[in-house]
Design a protein around this nucleic acid. Sequence first.
DNA 1: AAGTACCT
DNA 2: GGTT
Length: 214
Amino acid sequence: MNTEPDFREVRGVRLFDGMLDPAAQAAMVADIRALARTAPFLVPVTRRGQEMSVRMTSAGTFGWIPDRRGYRYERRHPSGVEWPPIPPSVLAVWRAVAPDARSPESCLVNWYAPGARMGMHQDRDEGDFDQPVVSISLGDDALFRIGNEARGGRTESVWLRSGDVMVLGGEARLLHHGVDRIAPGTSTLLEAPGRINLTLRVVTGQSPMEQQPE
DNA sequence: AAGTACCT
DNA sequence: GGTT
């Protein structure tokens, strides 16, 4: 990992290209494999009951759970086990790109097989929008689309490659975004074609009064 | 609509 | 890429 990471910006979204070298990427994949044995990947379901094309699990104090009852953060995997801890290698990325932020409370792990997509959406299930969202790309290239705070309107697309890190913070925190396409075979990091994305978030509000009880 | 399909 |  670079000590003084450089970045470019698209609509205020910070893109740290090639921040993780191949060895760091491989180590992170091993960490994810291990945590998925404790907290297996799930088939997420939208509010309207439709299965999403990605597969999801989480690490940290909270995991993101979408189902017919709505979208929320929970302290346990549906199996009843606590989410495994966020790997130190992943926490180090957060610290490098968001040194002034609170510690991340959730690491969402999204697995995109070829053909999987993520519709345009905002990350707004968290309690403190002053805290950034940090995304780490592993495996095949992904075509990522950045929109606006309001739904609809003009968008811009960027290709995310394995080892890239992205920060949605500040004015860009509530921009709509999504994944249009995975390009199979563009990386040899994973055993199977596809992409793994890690998304780090602070979940709870800033005030101690807002902290969620067990 | 963290979808899908369809339009330009 | 934009709208639904």
